[in-house]
Amino acid sequence: MILGNPFKLRRNGVMGLNERNLRLVAELNPRGLMRLVNDKTITKRLAIEAGIPNPELIGLVSNPYDMRRLDQMLERPNGVAIKPANGSQGNGIMIITGPMKGGYKLANGRRVVFEDVRFHVMNILSGMYSLGGLPDTALIEERVRFAGVFDEISFKGVPDVRIIVLKGVPILAMLRLPTADSDGKANLHKGGVGVGVDLVTGVTQLGMQYDQLVDFHPDTANELSGLQTPYWEDMLIMAAQAYDVTSLGFLGADIVIDVDKGPLLLELNGRPGIAIQIANRFGLRAHVEPVLAADTSKMDAKARIAFGKDIYRLIHEGQAAA
């Protein structure tokens, strides 16, 4: 089958990018607030203030003067992550797992020297990865050492959990797994695997890769479903709180699990992708409509999570009964 029948897709509540942009992003995310999630330094500050755990910030490099301290910042036994503050879709992120023979070892196993890292930071500063080529800042963060929960279904790199939060209500979640294709990144565009996660229990379901349904991880050949995501309730709370600190009505919260620190908020996305529908094998609209119709302004994070779970349960059990 080359094309899907648009009427069937519509009946199944599948949402397209146009509808997402108009009904969710444009309606719920005022442009002035998008800065809060586009600029990772601001997101980080907000998260720290609200007590949402996130990777420790080692330092910022926003001009050549800061660059002098770059080598000190890289001196971390557990490695660092270098990110453009205004990067998008995971572009421009460099993960150093630790020192290696006078240079540094990258997440994909390659060895680079200090000069290479410096050049990468310079590119970030001159705006190579930022929207519109504006000068940017580089964040140097503690590298997240991923807890081995999903080792069976990951290939190198760091898996993360994406939770869609609508008006503060978590409505859908997926686990994003790196693959050989995605070069250690959990980005679905780059060939990562997306796995639906039961919003109520945090147990993984079936998955997708390259917009195709998959039941097994393509590299490890292990079954994707049936794994319990640890700290699931904590993650839901972090995601729901992200709404309180940003006021953005349509958010994607990306959370990773550190072996020592537990779940950490990696970043927020004001334009979360819609591939999550394929990962969950369910259209977004059914989850979106009840939240849009409800007034969530009086609810606290816990109440919103309960509301989100009710909706999820209702839809999916209603489906089961039908």
Partner: peptide, 22 residues
């Protein structure tokens, strides 16, 4: 339409794809 082609049958074949495991 191509990207989401896999989501066409979801309601027709299995009402809830991961019912058992949930």
């Amino acid at each position: 339409l191509r990207r989401f082609r896999e989501l066409i049958g979801i309601k027709d074949e299995a009402e809830f794809p991961f019912k058992d495991k949930a």
